[in-house]
Write a protein that binds this DNA or RNA. Sequence first.
DNA 1: CCATATAATCAGATTTCCTTACTATCTGCC
DNA 2: GGCAGATAGTAAGGAAATCTGATTATATGG
Lengths: 152, 152
Amino acid sequence: MKSAAASRPMGFLIGDLARLMRRRFERRLAGSDTGLTVSEARTLAMVEHYSGWRQTALADRMGIEPMTLSGFLDRLEAAGLVVRKPDPNDRRAKLITLAPAAAPVLERIHEEMVAIRLEALEGFSEEDADRLYALLQRMHGNLCCCGPEELS
Amino acid sequence: MKSAAASRPMGFLIGDLARLMRRRFERRLAGSDTGLTVSEARTLAMVEHYSGWRQTALADRMGIEPMTLSGFLDRLEAAGLVVRKPDPNDRRAKLITLAPAAAPVLERIHEEMVAIRLEALEGFSEEDADRLYALLQRMHGNLCCCGPEELS
DNA sequence: CCATATAATCAGATTTCCTTACTATCTGCC
DNA sequence: GGCAGATAGTAAGGAAATCTGATTATATGG
């Protein structure tokens, strides 16, 4: 009946994991001289994947408020890593794309992400890793409550 | 390793989940009139489970710096929910225990945690939930072995 | 052509952490 | 005993990631 989860509630366990991974990512970013914070790096990676989207859509995708994203984009734009260009169909909106200078930084970010993933999943079989990933995504679908999970 | 994880890196997925769960917990705490933040609630729950521990040990267990814990305990103590009493064996140390007033607050916290867990794991079989929990704990074990100062 | 909704942003605040430095105390060694 | 060095807690200060509410420009439907 009572599952093992009682001993360390799921939410706290996930929070702990997030803190641990964030900490490692922070150190790695600091050491790799990108000058980015974790959230800026995440934003940059999202822009890479969802290039040309407008800020509202991107913020929604990232699960944060538009204003929060705006701040991250300010700094990325100032660093010459992304470009905000006006949407020709809607003069209120801006479309976010990568600047050329983003390429090497993204490469660095991807390397660090892979390294952390390897540390986190050390000793996991490919099967276990996939299973974990699938379960986490199901959980995400349960919580993000805004429409069905699409893939890309 | 070319698994599905490439599409949304594990670290970001876990970070997203942590943000989603934290947000729900925040709303619930605000609505349930405990006057606590998420981390204060977590600290209180830890004190319940590890009653009589000294602060350093508790902080280590929680994966945060002693100074960070100290602040949370300050507020919990001011709210009359925990007690710091001197360790009879070591006058530098203080042992943290629950104050009587903590009982109803903890009951409230447990209710909210259960509710969020149900939301997050909706549609999960007991088996899936246990499997997820076990995988997350293995991952935690992989990551938690080094303190924040010893990463490189 | 106006009312309302939407896109981005300004201003300000909160929360959760960290680092560095300091005091009091303990412990082991001469 | 008494000092050297470790350890427990904390004061001070700050960085990062988020939020909310107000503001401005623009779009869109009736």
